[in-house]
Nucleic acid binder design. Structure first.
Lengths: 253, 253
DNA sequence: CGGGAGGTTGACAATCGTCAATCAGAGTGG
DNA sequence: CCACTCTGATTGACGATTGTCAACCTCCCG
């Protein structure tokens, strides 16, 4: 793997992310930026963590998109979350011994790997940073709960619409795009793995969303949302579970 | 609601739970036991937290069983987790502002409600307790991920078998019963809400498990597991996601 | 221009849901 | 002690959503 160039502001996305949760003072920020890390360029489809392997690093995404997934006995695969720039994909690896899932890149990603000892040290020395990371974990858990609901109790159309809403809003909140027009970095098979459907059914369902004029596509991956409210309604999407600040929630126009 | 009698050891189950995650010294233990709390007896079906309501307390279960659930637009309900004695059902309420789900009792429960300020104070003053609570949150999240997989990628038979395995093992680990013979405190409708199925299909699926001699029932709620390994195999159940200690994992005979 | 990944479509099958009736057991009042 | 009622379990007939299999298409890239 390539070693991308780094400097003292490489971990800035993490500072941004954690600052959005709690008030951090300059020492807190400095301590985060001073974390030792290994920067890597990881290619599409490659893994940074594999289920059942001992976990030594937590992985911060500096650019690109990644997913966490698990495999079932019959060979099926379930994506349990999608991650974007600034997110610590694997905070749990700092405290739990063995990975319970895999982390795989959807696109080429620049990542920063931080050794678990260093995350723990930071948490012990800077209580507000620890609190921010804890909150991050709690929001993660809230998103997992919503996904259980999504695959457990919603039909295909609602599931896909919900996923489109969540992804686009998170992109916008992270300052990475508009929630009305964006590139979806996933194949239809991956969408299926995220929603508990097959790629064939995803394809049909997206076609229906298009026919119903909830979305428009110029190519299979570029999603245009004409009326965000209507799509949110179709997806039974309510921002509550994302635990956004008032400013952030206002972005769900 | 009744006020059950309490004393200085009422919060002992929480000390036990957190001690199983990290090494706590006597000051840590004393600080947990000294948490101010309100003890309540909550009846079956009653709620302690409701989705969208501001969260003021975290709820510790002292006896009985509870679930967390969410409602979808069509009226369907999804149970996202089941909780037993010693578990902090709502640690996230200490850090997040508004509840993203409801907490409801499956049976009459004795609970201790701890104000969020007190949980936060404890976390700031006792870093190892904070770490234990953080780990607890991380394990919770791991269980949510497994549930996403369960409802997203497993068929009805496997889902039910998985749920039976998880519940019985968690009971045994908590010292509340055997994993080969226990009372399931849920109706078939609730089992359906937990697995993304209907009560009718749950009923049929359980019948199949019985016919296949994976379980035996003397009444609808009492589950006897003849061959734990076979049930675990049928349920695609692997203890990894529970992040148990070696001793605890050994209980999955 | 050939290969490959991913998207699209159709025919058909299977799992699971819906509706509705019946049954079993616990608690209650007379 | 016995009807009565209520909740939850059980079963059957039927329908709908979603999966499976397989073909073909489209675009990108070397």
């Amino acid at each position: 793997m390539t070693q991308p160039t780094t400097d003292s502001s490489t971990l800035k996305p993490l500072v941004e992310k954690l600052s959005s949760r709690v008030q951090l003072d300059s020492k807190d920020r400095a301590a985060i930026l001073a974390l030792p890390f290994i920067a890597k360029l990881v290619e599409r489809h490659h893994y940074v963590v594999r289920e059942y392997e001992p976990a030594e690093y937590s992985c911060l995404i500096l650019s690109g998109y990644a997913v966490r997934s698990k495999i079932v006995a019959t060979g099926g695969r379930q994506i349990v979350s999608i991650h974007i720039k600034g997110e610590m994909v694997d905070l749990q690896n700092s405290l739990l011994k063995k990975a319970d899932h895999s982390v795989q890149m959807l696109t080429q990603c620049k990542v920063a790997l931080v050794r678990r000892e260093n995350v723990l040290k930071l948490a012990m020395e800077r209580p507000m940073v620890a609190r921010a990371m804890w909150i991050d974990t709690l929001v993660d858990a809230s998103i997992f709960r919503e996904w259980i609901v999504n695959v457990g109790r919603r039909d295909a159309r609602t599931r896909i619409a919900h996923l489109l809403c969540e992804f686009s809003l998170r992109l916008k909140v992270a300052g990475l795009g508009e929630n009305t027009r964006y590139e979806l970095p996933m194949t239809q098979e991956q969408l299926g793995d995220a929603t508990g459907l097959t790629s064939v059914h995803v394809n049909r369902t997206i076609k229906v969303l298009e026919q119903d004029q909830l979305i428009e596509r110029f190519n299979p991956r570029s999603i245009h949302v004409g009326d965000w409210r209507k799509l949110a309604e179709a997806g039974d999407f309510d921002t509550n579970y994302l635990h956004l600040s008032e400013d952030e929630a206002a972005l769900a126009s």
